[in-house]
């Protein structure tokens, strides 16, 4: 399986991501510079975490207008799977590939800690490695992860089953204390209508190496993608 990781100036989790992708696919992903206007033929495009352009205007806003994003959008429209993690999720919302927006965490602070997520559906290429309703533990590391959208959009996400992950407690229950950043409907990640684009704030890529201190609950996301796309 061939993957491309888009690097913006200020991306900083591409290393974590490339390690996780290599572990799952057995191949180094292609790193594509944001100024490039062409993408190689790949099975999956990933936008990594970080602070593209310093997140100075609004998280992901400037990156969404990078030359490469025209091509990412075109590919996504033709059905190439796109995964955006953390800053990558913010870029996808700014680029219009996913609805809604990510506001400042309700604590107003950056938060880096492990959280529990409930897998809402496993009927997608991204989550087929999990059981529906499974609780997983992965880290978050963000300042602006408070998902918001208008009521109509939230209704549509719920009605069509487009919520990928929700913040929950260790027992898998959705409660306000577990909603680490205050997201609407405790949303941690969403799909587009075709379920070919996933954006999520947590970092599954940082929970794929048994030697590191974050567990390996993120591995099934990458393994599932390989199984679905290969």
């Amino acid at each position: 399986m061939n993957t491309a990781v888009v690097i913006f100036p200020g991306s900083n989790r591409e290393r974590d991501l490339c390690l996780a992708l290599k572990r799952a696919t057995g191949r180094d992903p292609l790193c594509v510079w944001h100024r490039d206007s062409e993408l190689p033929s790949v099975d999956l495009i990933v936008l990594p975490g970080g602070f593209a352009y310093g997140d100075y205007l609004r998280c992901g806003a400037m990156a969404a207008h990078s030359p490469i994003m025209r091509e990412v959008k075109a590919r996504a429209e033709r059905g190439t799977p796109v995964l955006g993690i953390c800053n990558g999720f913010q870029v996808l919302t700014e680029a219009g590939l996913l609805p809604g927006a990510l506001l400042t965490n309700r604590t107003l602070n950056f938060i880096c800690r492990d959280v529990h997520l409930r897998v809402e559906t496993n009927q997608t290429i991204f989550t087929c490695g999990y059981a529906a309703g499974q609780t997983i533990r992965v880290p978050v590391a963000h300042h602006d992860g408070n998902y918001t959208a208008d009521e109509a959009t939230l209704d549509e996400l719920e009605d069509r089953g487009l919520v990928a992950f929700r913040y929950c407690n260790a027992a898998g229950e959705i409660d306000d204390d577990a909603n680490v950043n205050g997201s609407a409907h405790a949303i941690a990640g969403i799909f587009n209508r075709g379920r070919t684009v996933l954006g999520l704030m947590p970092h599954p890529e940082d929970a794929t190496d048994p030697l590191m201190g974050c567990g390996t609950d993120g591995s099934a996301l990458f393994a599932g993608l390989v199984g679905a796309l290969q």
């Binding site: 290393r15 974590d16 938060i111 880096c112 590391a141």
Partner: peptide, 24 residues
């Protein structure tokens, strides 16, 4: 330390709170 990204680069073996941090 929850306001610090302790994990980026993917090499943090032991996070803050112990006697020493361990980084691969």
């Amino acid at each position: 330390w929850q306001q610090y990204d302790q994990l980026v680069l993917g090499n943090t073996v032991q996070r803050p709170g112990g006697d020493a941090a361990v980084v691969r």
